[in-house]
Amino acid sequence: MKVIAITGGIASGKSAVTDQIRQAGYRVVDADLLARQVVEPGTHTLEEIKEAFGQEIVQNGVLDRKALGEKVFANPALLKELTKITSPEIQSAIRDQLAFFKMKEEPIVFCAIPLFFEQHYEKTGWFDQVLVVSASEREQLERLMARDHLDEWAAQSRIKSQMPVQEKIAKADVVIENNGTAEELAQKVQDYLKHLEVA
């Protein structure tokens, strides 16, 4: 089974690329989805977060992701603390899903992991290829402000909390650049998948 990681900067278009790959019929393990599942009501991860960050970030038993985001993205030490709690749980869930697809003898499986390099997934030895979706910082900033209704300062702090996109590009096996239209991006993904089938 060939395992391909999809990563890139925040608001670079990773989700759009992942959606297209899923629509093309490929299996996708989605770290963002798993990140939500590991903090669902009743999980020990949620309890740990509540202890570390205070009762007020849980509303009616549910994690208030916006309140937590406002706390951690402005404070690198708190972001590190949160990562220490959630990262092992997410990694374990990814490993389980990959084992399941291997058992099913899927030929190619994609893993969408936004913080692939930040959390050192490249050292796990699970991946045959790393695909980075890139966008200019200006594009990232504008998309992030529009998507998450953030002011420029808040958007900048989220971008700065991640590894610079140029560093990710340097570590990538494949780069899909997304500074243009949705149609242009769709064409690039199609071309990539066609090449993948041939290879």
Rank of each mutant, 00 (worst) to 15 (best):
L78A: 11
L131T: 01
P41N: 01
E137G: 05
H149Q: 15
P41S: 01
I10Q: 02
K188T: 03
I4Q: 02
V189G: 00
P164I: 07
S157R: 13
T45M: 10
I108G: 05
L33M: 12
V175S: 04
L131M: 07
Q37L: 10
K2S: 14
L115E: 08
K123I: 11
F101T: 00
V198K: 15
A5P: 04
H195V: 10
E137T: 15
I94V: 14
K104M: 11
F110L: 07
Y26W: 08
K160N: 14
Q55I: 10
H44D: 13
E51S: 12
A155V: 08
I108V: 12
P76Q: 07
K171C: 08
H149D: 15
L46C: 08
Q129I: 06
Y192S: 10
H120N: 15
V133S: 03
I169N: 06
G42I: 15
H44K: 15
H120M: 10
V132E: 05
D96M: 13
V62Q: 13
Q162T: 10
D19M: 13
K188W: 00
P88C: 06
E122R: 07
I113C: 05
E81N: 13
V72N: 04
S161V: 09
A172E: 05
V109R: 05
K171N: 06
Q162F: 11
E167D: 09
C111V: 15
W126L: 10
L98D: 03
L196H: 09
K14Q: 11
R95T: 15
G180T: 03
K123D: 15
Q23N: 12
Q190P: 00
F127C: 03
L144E: 00
R138F: 08
A67V: 04
G61E: 07
A182K: 14
H149E: 14
G54M: 00
R143S: 06
P41C: 05
E48T: 06
I49H: 07
D128Y: 13
P114V: 04
F127P: 06
K2C: 10
A93E: 08
T45W: 11
L150H: 11
E40S: 15
L46W: 13
R36E: 01
A31T: 12
S15P: 00
V165Q: 07
F127T: 05
E167P: 01
V130D: 05
E139M: 13
Q91C: 07
D128Q: 08
I57L: 04
R27T: 09
I90R: 01
L150N: 09
Q91L: 13
K123P: 07
I49K: 09
R22G: 08
R27V: 07
V132Y: 03
M163T: 14
K80G: 11
D148K: 09
A11C: 06
E137F: 11
E183H: 03
F101W: 09
T45N: 14
D151G: 11
M1G: 14
V174G: 05
H120S: 08
A24G: 06
A154Q: 11
L78V: 00
V28S: 06
Q37K: 07
Q20K: 15
Q20F: 09
I176G: 12
S134W: 00
Q187S: 08
G125T: 06
L34H: 04
K14G: 12
D148Y: 02
V72P: 00
Q190M: 09
G69L: 02
Q97W: 11
R138D: 12
G25V: 03
M145S: 07
S87A: 15
V39L: 01
